[in-house]
Amino acid sequence: MAQQYTKKMIRDVFVQMLNEKPFDKITVKNIVNKCKINRKTFYYYYENLYSVLREIFESEIEDVIAQYNETQSWEESFIFAARFSLENKKAIYHVFNSIHREELERYLYTIAGNVMFRYVEDINKNIQASDRDKKIIASFYQSALTNMVLHWIADGMVEKPEIIIRRIGALFDGNISESLKRSKKLP
């Protein structure tokens, strides 16, 4: 129990600091001083700051998987999945502009994939498209959503993402279902 508390404290302090300053300005010393622990304790749990970041993103992905609700639209699921990014815009921006950007990209790609693959499966229950085509359709939307979020971050995260996601949903409403139906007609 104490171990989980210490790890959570380290992660929380790291996110707090990421919301205040760039990734490359944060040190293990900053973290241990703020947590009032020694360096050995930090290194007992984490190899470096990069491993703290990776665990934060992995934990968020696990939460999204656990909280997935089949009654939600893909838009609502994606907005829920992106809640960490929305609640920690400065931290996300700082990671985006660091040498650890690929970890953020992997996180966003995994989140988008989880949402889209599950949504395509749900839509396909009554259609029975091929597994190959389901994968192509979900991958297409996964890549598109990830790229749109990365552009949103690069543009300074000004526009509300909920508005963008809902607009995309309205513009492309029914396309996934129609694509799955077309799959049945293809050789």
Rank of each mutant, 00 (worst) to 15 (best):
R101Y: 08
I163G: 02
Y93S: 14
R106Y: 12
K89N: 02
M148K: 05
G113V: 04
P161A: 06
G156A: 12
R167T: 14
D131E: 13
P161E: 11
A112F: 02
F84A: 09
N88Q: 07
I137R: 06
A81K: 01
A154H: 13
E159R: 10
T110M: 03
G156M: 15
E121H: 08
S130T: 15
I79M: 07
S143I: 04
S98E: 09
I92R: 02
K125M: 06
N114R: 05
N114V: 10
N126E: 15
I176Y: 09
G113D: 07
Y107G: 07
N114G: 03
R166V: 03
A91K: 01
L86A: 00
R132T: 14
G169Y: 04
A82K: 01
N175W: 07
D133A: 11
V158L: 08
E105D: 02
E102I: 11
R106A: 11
Q142K: 15
P161N: 09
M116E: 08
Q128V: 12
K135L: 08
S130W: 04
L108P: 00
H100W: 02
S179Y: 04
V115I: 12
N97A: 02
Y109K: 05
E162S: 13
R182W: 11
E87Y: 01
L171N: 08
A170R: 14
E159W: 00
M157H: 09
V115F: 08
I136A: 11
K89F: 05
A129P: 14
F80V: 01
Y141D: 06
I123G: 04
R118H: 11
D133H: 08
S85V: 12
S177W: 01
A154V: 05
E103H: 08
I92M: 15
D122S: 14
K181F: 07
V95E: 00
R166N: 11
S177D: 03
A138C: 10
I99Y: 04
N147F: 06
T146K: 15
Y93D: 06
H94F: 10
E121N: 06
V115C: 08
D173C: 02
R83S: 04
T110C: 13
